[in-house]
Write a protein that binds this DNA or RNA. Structure first.
Length: 476
RNA sequence: UCCUUCUUAGCUCAGUCGGUUAGAGCACAUGACUGUUAAUCAUGGGGUCCCUGGUUCGAGCCCAGGAGAGGGAGCCA
């Protein structure tokens, strides 16, 4: 029986067997206490070994990190801190853990150190809590879409197009790294490669997602995506998971409504279903906050922040309105921004942070960006200057969602591909959807790790994915 | 990629003006203790001071180069 279930049982004379990893062992002359955890819950179960119940040799093997099965009777606990505990009659040691060598000690470890032992960090309270929340959010995503008539579309991970323009790509090839076949003009001959052309790992499933939406009406993708950008920040990974719904007959406002309802319901799901884990992470954050200066401490606890976001309306405004607010802002007038503010600029982090964290103090949806700073597939407004784009900005995270209504007019789309220098041949199939039964449609991409970051209150994206891939780092 | 900070025991860190034998807390080991909650108390072991080179009578400390990590920025989700 899992420890999560066991802790909910009322004590009985029935014999139970619990399997898990030892967190701590406390020994006194006549009794030993073993705290065990199997990852099913943040809570440990206490196994009590009375004098003589288990041989001394066996008990000696029970150390922090070892894996054991204990058999005994579930009894009411005499001590504080738990209602039931196991009165042990037998212990089976599955795997020992030399206490001199086992890196996880019954004490606080820095997140930096735990990153170096990512193979063991899921055994800590913090990471098991994060991983359970990550799972719950993934489940909630599928449930939400299923309940709302979306179909899960599996878009390819290896792509032959590099038209998304979302960033540098990882090349996929089976050609030898040394002396690859060359063309007559000395370049690598990809006709000889596995697919007979240049291929890469996907940076987004959107273009294929649109093909699905043009048949199934409402689809979503949820899979890994890859960016070979040399980004070294707390918000970027080279391999991350993205959720990309795409809906026929949706215009920009429908898209915004969906994005807002979707993220709110995911957060509510976590609040309802991961209460223990969120409470643990909240306590952890509070301790961390105490170390900070007064002015840097956040005004809300983690659960307050999550509830605030899930219960309040996101602020919606256009890029042009946002620029006006920034031009009127104190930091702009006092010259505090490092980057100048003017219509046409790409908003910098400091600008987004001001809008979200200082001015509105809630999530913000920015729309109608200038076309020149956005992707080619976004629908051009009638003003000819802006596109029907939307970015959802979250406090502390920045851009968590980027999306748009797509250009559904063939001529206009073709025009834009030419302007940004995309070869027609490379995305003929994408362009054809605008020739055969085109329809207004829209969609967005949600960075899954950024959502997990927000819900767990963690500050580094490397700590919300089991095995992070970042520049110069692909261990484990 | 740029800016910036850091690298000393298993972990988190201190280390004075460059000075002879490098410290603390936790962890670990041993012992004590009749119910603990990251138990407590006592004792003990544990060091390539990130690497390479230089300055100096003498370098953990100063200089140069390199590696790794953190934070910020850019790119974005």
């Amino acid at each position: 029986m899992q420890i999560k279930e066991l802790l909910l049982q009322s004590p009985s004379q029935q014999t139970v067997t619990v399997k898990g990893w030892v967190r701590t062992k406390r020994v006194s002359s006549s009794v030993a206490f073993i705290a065990m955890n199997d990852g099913s819950t943040i809570h440990n179960i206490q196994a009590v070994v009375s004098d003589g119940a288990v041989s001394e040799e066996t008990l000696k093997l029970v150390t922090t990190g070892s894996c054991i099965a204990v058999t005994g009777i579930l009894i009411p606990s005499q001590g504080q801190g738990q209602s039931v505990e196991v009165q042990v009659s037998a212990i089976q040691v599955y795997g020992t853990a030399d206490p001199e060598k086992y890196p996880l000690q019954p004490k606080k470890h820095s997140l930096e150190f735990l990153r170096e032992i990512a193979h063991l960090r899921p055994r800590t309270n913090t990471f098991s809590a994060i991983l359970r929340i990550r799972h719950a959010l993934a489940f909630a995503i599928h449930q939400y879409f299923n309940d709302h008539g979306f179909f899960y579309l599996h878009t390819p991970i290896i792509t032959g197009s590099d038209a998304e323009g979302a960033g540098e790509m990882f090349r996929v090839t089976t050609l030898p790294a040394i002396n690859p076949p060359l063309t007559e003009d000395g370049k690598v001959d990809y006709k000889e490669d596995f697919f007979g052309k240049e291929t890469n790992l996907t940076v987004s499933g959107q273009l294929e997602g649109e093909l699905g939406a043009m048949a199934l009406s409402k689809i979503y993708t949820f899979g890994p995506t890859f960016r070979a950008e040399n980004s070294n920040t707390t918000r970027h990974l080279a391999e991350f998971w993205m959720v990309e719904p795409e809906m026929a007959f949706f215009e920009l406002t429908d898209n915004m409504n969906l994005a807002e309802d979707f993220t709110k319901s995911l957060i509510s799901y976590a609040l309802e279903n991961c209460a223990d884990d969120i409470a643990f992470l909240e306590k952890r954050l509070l301790e961390e906050e105490k170390m900070k200066k007064k002015e840097e401490q956040s005004e809300m606890t983690l659960s307050e922040k999550l509830r605030f976001v899930s219960e309040n309306t996101f602020e919606r405004l256009t890029y042009t309105e946002a620029i006006d607010i920034l031009l009127q802002s104190k930091p702009h007038k006092q010259g505090k921004f490092n980057y100048p503010v003017a219509w046409g600029i790409d908003l910098q982090s400091e600008h987004e942070r001001y809008l979200v964290e200082k001015h509105f103090k809630k999530p913000v949806i920015l729309t109608h960006y200038p076309k020149d700073i956005k992707a080619f597939y976004m629908k051009l407004e009638d003003d000819g200057k802006t596109v029907r784009a939307m970015d959802v900005l979250f406090p502390g995270i920045g851009e968590i969602i980027g999306g748009s209504q797509r250009e559904d007019n063939y001529e206009k789309l073709l025009q834009r591909t030419k302007e940004v220098g995309i070869e027609e041949d490379s995305i003929w199939w994408y362009l054809q959807t605008r020739q055969f039964g085109s329809a207004p449609h829209a969609g967005f991409g949600l960075g899954f790790e950024r959502l997990v970051l927000f819900v767990t209150g963690m500050s580094n994206i490397r700590d919300v994915i089991p095995f992070p891939r970042t520049p110069k780092s692909a261990e484990f």
